[in-house]
Write a protein that binds this DNA or RNA. Structure first.
Length: 278
DNA sequence: ATTAATGTTCAGAA
DNA sequence: TTTCTGAACATTAA
């Protein structure tokens, strides 16, 4: 999503307004009048990413932070429906006329922050280092002592920023780690495999522009479907044969109130590992 | 017609 | 301190 939004670098903010959406308003800070006063006239200097958030940097030091959560989209093209359009940002002096924030469930937010607020909110301990920068040693340091299940721990954005539920499941399948294994029982080579799997899954997911699931919600900045759903090995594949071992069926369990998918053959629990080794 | 599920995050409680 | 639970919301599938 961030890559697509890069297309507005160099454009000037010409207008900011709420879309006419009859639903409960999403969180927009500061209030729209002040937001407009501060942002209009500024030029987009860069588009970055902090974990799962898209950050539009403006000259002068302010930044617009989009936090899409479950169903939010930052778009340069017309949104999927007019119904759930939440915010429109008019642009001038560039190829794109307007930036949209669309959000079906409305759990996301848009905030205009100063450089100081940005570093305060996202620089201190509230978000961990980005998943794509993380080393195996970082993983051990930040999660190695935790008693939580590895699947749950990898979702903790304060430990590592950027891993969501779907990619968590894919990562652990690649790393051949059972999702319920407690962090403090994992070994160095387990963490090394996890680190490599994080790199592989996230870079592939970015290359294929994300996963558009059966509800069709995720789209890139040009409102096009992603392609990574065709590469899922476990997510949403309960009961299907594992494409790696071609033996076991993918199982679904619930951890931290989230669905987890895994292959019982490729991702043995500790007990299964002991049993199979004799 | 209910209920459960959903690429998430946070406050507040255990 | 760390970990767990429920709520915010809208839509679809079972």
């Amino acid at each position: 999503m961030r890559r697509g939004v890069l297309g507005i670098v160099g454009s000037r903010i010409a207008d900011v307004r709420r879309a006419r959406c009859r639903r409960k308003p999403i969180l927009i800070e500061p209030r729209i009048e002040r937001f407009r006063r501060l942002a209009v006239g500024a030029t987009v200097s860069d588009v970055g990413r902090i974990g799962k958030r898209v950050v539009v940097h403006l000259d002068g030091g302010l930044a617009i932070v989009f936090e899409p959560r479950m169903t939010g989209l930052v778009l340069l093209a017309a949104p999927p429906t007019a119904e759930h359009l939440r915010l429109r940002i008019g642009l001038a002096e560039g190829p794109i006329d307007e930036l949209f924030y669309w959000d079906r469930r409305g759990l996301g937010s848009v905030r205009l922050l100063s450089a100081a607020e940005l570093s305060e909110l996202y620089g201190n301990g509230s978000l961990g280092p980005d998943a794509l920068q993380i080393t195996a040693a970082d993983l051990v340091e930040r999660l190695g002592g935790s008693r939580r299940a590895i699947k749950v721990a990898l979702l903790d954005q304060r430990a590592i920023a950027g891993i969501g539920n779907l990619y968590d499941a894919e990562i652990l399948h690649r790393a051949r780690i059972h999702p319920a294994r407690p962090c403090h029982r994992l070994h160095d080579d387990d963490w090394r495999r996890i680190q490599r799997a994080v790199q592989k899954v996230l870079t592939d997911a970015i290359r294929y522009e994300g996963s558009t699931l059966s509800d069709g919600t995720y789209r890139n900045a040009l409102n096009r479907s992603g392609g990574y759903q065709n590469h899922h090995r476990v997510y949403d594949r309960e009961g299907l044969r594992c494409v790696i071992c071609r033996t076991a069926e993918i199982q679904r369990i619930v951890q931290a109130q989230r669905a987890t998918f895994f292959c019982p053959q490729c991702q043995p629990s500790k007990l299964a590992r002991i049993a199979s080794s004799r």
